[in-house]
Amino acid sequence: MTSADVRKTRTGSPSSRSLVDEERELVVAAIACLRASDDPVDLLEVPREVVERYGPITSTSGTTPLPAANELHRSLDWDAETLERLASDLFDASAAATRTKPADVRAAVRKLDPNAVEGERARAFVEAQRAKK
């Protein structure tokens, strides 16, 4: 597995199904706010039932500047060996990440209400993106 592949492998399955479009957009916006950047966002979506075959999924609050997205955050509190096994299996199965391009990242960020964003840096980023509209 290359570092690029690993980079695209984000742990945590936000729901028992695939992300609905609104949730995906929220997660993309949250990552952009965290980075304060409209760089491309890569998400690898793995169905909950697949993840649960390896171990339990723990609901934990995320630490992005978007509280609404943080509620979707899940953790995989497993040993390194199990995590590695999941990553290897995903790689063997050629699981592919979905890339959100900068223009779509910007569009997702512009939909945010700056008052719903925590942290000065992230709020300034959202306001700057909305001003470019």
Binding site: T60, S61, T63, T64, P65, E118, G119, R121
Partner: peptide, 9 residues
């Protein structure tokens, strides 16, 4: 959990 968003900033 001790590393809240504020502490990470």
């Amino acid at each position: 959990t001790v590393w809240s968003r504020e502490r990470r900033e």
